[in-house]
Design a protein around this nucleic acid. Structure first.
Lengths: 236, 236
DNA sequence: GGTTGATGATGATCATTGTCATCCGTAAGC
DNA sequence: GCTTACGGATGACAATGATCATCATCAACC
């Protein structure tokens, strides 16, 4: 399944500068480093499952992770895309409830696990870490509320354009400067936008016809971000 | 406009047991109490406005407050309903950005204001308060993500039923045990559900016809919560 | 090479839901 | 008392977007 190892060090982790953990005081970070376990996940593997109880918190070392709810009818709704340095699984841990979302690797990924007790105790004594944590969650909440507004007020076309820009924002582009640096199925894109797969496919084709994007299998190239922003009808 | 006064005491505030502030250490709560300013707002008055910069945090003493985003086309989306004891305006304060939502009184309300510097300094030194704060925000995020899933997967009918139950959950009912303890216009209900006003009106009429609810102007009586839950198609 | 299965593409159709227009009732104001 | 304004209700209509069905494409595998 997935190999566990200790050797990815927080202190010189590739992702450390973008990571909240690096805001912890040094002694606390060392404590975390000593206790953490790093695991590899193959594309498609589940890091944690909706409905399960949390035993700790995860920090993405390399790779990409999607976080998705499973709707009542079984359709998934992707609520977050995590990248190296991001922590995942904190909501369930903080509120001591079951996971309300599953985390699944979009790539081969390596993810560090920090046991619950340790993390909570560090959080209690490290004001700077917990303050940063609060800021991150508050900013997630902000984004979520914006998404709620857009979901109920904007048509699918605008939301798809916005989603493409959001993906670029999150995972960046390849060396050519255009190709989104992640492979998502049409279904996953639809589940991110909050629409049917067919609608996503259709609109992607339209965007392509209009010269906004280029499609090559799962590769998506954003040729004209200005026009995409106009299509997304973004104010801010 | 609104009268400001100091006399509502946190230590014996009506709302203190439901409030996060009461989780602060006693000395810190006293400090907050000394610095806070309590103001009255008439129904419809704005506590803070989307786009403005925050100067502090607010704690609802009495009354009801709606928090709403203004969509690009001017339509409002209500993202939260606050009740006595709830704090509002923390997201903007924590991330030191402008408000992304406006807070408007649904009732005559009294709201306490705690200056930014003081609140932030207390937050830094009071681990228990900041931990509780984190839990609250995490739980809001959870709810927001669930709402996102429902918005993109559930029909308006189910969402309206869910919203009615949510309002009951939040503000409770009057002495008769049925009448929702808040007056919302049809438009506000629609903006809570994320649909057009006409759709909300139409479906409310249907619910009434089906004996689920009773309507008398802005009074809404939930006659059959079990059936409403079934209509909402809630799993958990 | 051919089979199978998953994913993507596209057309046809249908339903949900939003928009527009109108009307009614109530409350406020002169 | 009449007017005006606003919120609520309802019908007609349009359109967005979901669903269903079919077909194409591609890769994996026997």
């Amino acid at each position: 399944m997935c190999t566990a190892f200790h050797n990815a060090s927080c202190l010189n982790c590739q992702a450390r500068f973008g990571s909240i953990l690096f805001k912890a005081e040094k002694c606390n970070l060392e404590e975390i480093e000593a206790a953490k376990v790093c695991s590899m996940y193959k594309k498609g593997q589940v890091v944690f499952q909706e409905g399960a109880y949390p035993f700790g918190i995860y920090c993405v070392n390399t790779g990409k992770i999607k976080l998705s709810h499973c709707g009542d009818d079984g359709r998934e709704q992707i609520v977050r895309l995590a990248k190296p340095g991001d922590i995942i699984g904190y909501k369930a841990l903080l509120s001591a409830e079951r996971y309300t979302a599953s985390a699944i690797a979009l790539d081969d990924a390596s993810v560090c696990f920090i046991p619950k007790d340790l993390f909570m105790s560090v959080l209690q004594k490290d004001a700077s870490l917990s303050f940063e944590m609060m800021r991150i969650i508050a900013s997630e909440l902000r984004k979520a509320e914006l998404k709620i507004t857009h979901l109920s007020q904007k048509p699918v076309r605008e939301r798809l354009a916005e989603t493409l820009l959001f993906i670029k924002e999150t995972y960046g582009v390849e060396a050519d400067g255009f190709t989104l640096n992640v492979r998502l199925s049409r279904e996953e894109i639809a589940n991110l936008v909050g629409t049917a797969t067919e609608s996503a496919i259709r609109l992607l084709s339209e965007f392509k016809k209009d010269g906004l994007i280029e499609l090559q299998g799962k590769k998506i190239r954003l040729l004209n971000t200005e026009e995409l922003m106009r299509t997304a009808n973004l104010q801010d």
